[in-house]
Design a protein around this nucleic acid. Structure first.
Lengths: 227, 227
DNA sequence: ATTCGTCTGTCAGCTACCCGACAAAAGGAC
DNA sequence: GTCCTTTTGTCGGGTAGCTGACAGACGAAT
């Protein structure tokens, strides 16, 4: 769901990275805007013989919410949601969409490559971000290949509960997306998410406060679902 | 299946990277050896509060075949097979196992971090490798979340056919793993792989030459299965 | 307050694939 | 050649989850 804990806005606020920050171009996008749409080719084997893409890009979310997702026909799978401070490096055929009005700091590829050679601190940050993206991707693969939807949903709920640590006494979870969008994040259908949330409620693990807002009544039992 | 096209052995052969090459320690492993076994904790939410792992590591495969995989109970999912020249940076709870006697060039974390700050060429190579790993991971996620097993197998076969470009007239595919291991790479069961290979054979797409060796009779029809 | 569009819960039929099991085939060791 | 282990192909029953559909709930706009 989220790629990395590194806040690039804080990193770029450091004085030695000031020239780098000035190289980014600020751009505004309205909600639902598709920032990046890959030239998707179903024939994956041909990718090896294609020229390297010249329109790779890097951006940092300054404000808003951005979704990284894969798409095939009418099916979509959300890989990550990016919040302010998050950086994304495009290396694949993933779509980029703004879910809430956003401001992005964009960096063109030649500048990106030059900065990597001349500003080691930046490059190390990029490595850390890529490492976080990789770890998150492995976790997604683990969920899809080795677990079932119940575990994936339980994981999401626990993650969300911990993101709202200021509500730690209440254990309230505000689902950041509609059921349909959550389903796309967990690789399942909206109906299954609805069914499972109802199951968790009947089991006394959750209590629905209102649409999209749940209270965790028994976190230990939620954690038991992880096994 | 494979992470990146970058051959680090060739990269490290460049004169300016000689000090870096000398920092690697050479280590031998017998087939089946587990090189790295994570302290796997089922409770993923706790990972945010854990100390950073001190035993992250980097290695380059000098010879042999190495498998990167995830494991849960008796289920396993293979993320990648590394061949000579491939580099792996551990950032997650993946296992590392030697499938064929291997020689690895290992780099400890402090040296790794120091070299990243002092040798920009190395850092850029790391970024490119991580980018390749990420792209490959996205492709795996795409296959697991948005496609079915037929597509995943067809992709694998096409990839393998293109890796053996020296046999381009023959379109012979030597499966590098047993049916069971292939199933673990595609997130399915051995029986399903067997059934699908038989289906492809009955459809006139493949012809079985011997165990583990197939000829592609109709590559266009194999590619049609990708849609 | 009303209307409309989106979201949600539920249902029943369907399906892609799993799983345990067994027999046959294949390859390697002796 | 024999023996043993691993691999492979096949079968039939079972299941996690999908899918289309419908009605109700909810929130925003007017």
């Amino acid at each position: 769901m989220k790629f990395s804990n590194i806040n690039l806005l804080e990193e770029l606020a450091r004085p030695e990275l000031a020239p780098l920050l000035s190289a980014f171009h600020e751009r505004r996008y309205a909600r639902q805007a598709i920032v990046f749409s890959p030239q998707y080719d179903d024939d994956l084997a041909e990718q090896e013989t294609q020229k390297p893409r010249e329109d790779n890009f890097v951006f940092i979310v300054k404000s808003g919410l951005v979704r990284i997702y894969l798409s095939y026909g009418d099916r979509e799978f959300t890989i990550a949601l990016l919040k302010p401070g998050d950086l994304y490096v495009s290396h694949s055929n993933a779509f980029v969409q703004v879910l809430e009005d956003a401001v992005l700091l964009l960096l063109d590829t030649p500048t990106f490559n030059r900065c990597m050679m001349t500003i080691p601190e930046f490059t190390v940050s990029i490595v850390r971000v890529l490492g976080g993206m990789l770890k998150s991707s492995f976790s997604i693969i683990d969920g899809l290949a080795l677990r079932d939807v119940t575990v994936r949903l339980a994981r999401l709920l626990i993650d969300l509960a911990h993101e709202n640590d200021d509500n730690s006494q209440e254990r309230l979870i505000r689902l950041p997306l509609s059921g349909e969008m959550l389903a796309q994040t967990l690789g399942t259908s909206r109906q299954t998410i609805s069914t499972l949330l109802t199951d968790f409620t009947r089991l006394g693990i959750l209590q629905k406060e209102q649409r999209g807002l749940y209270r965790i009544l028994d976190e230990n039992r939620l954690r038991e679902l992880l096994h």
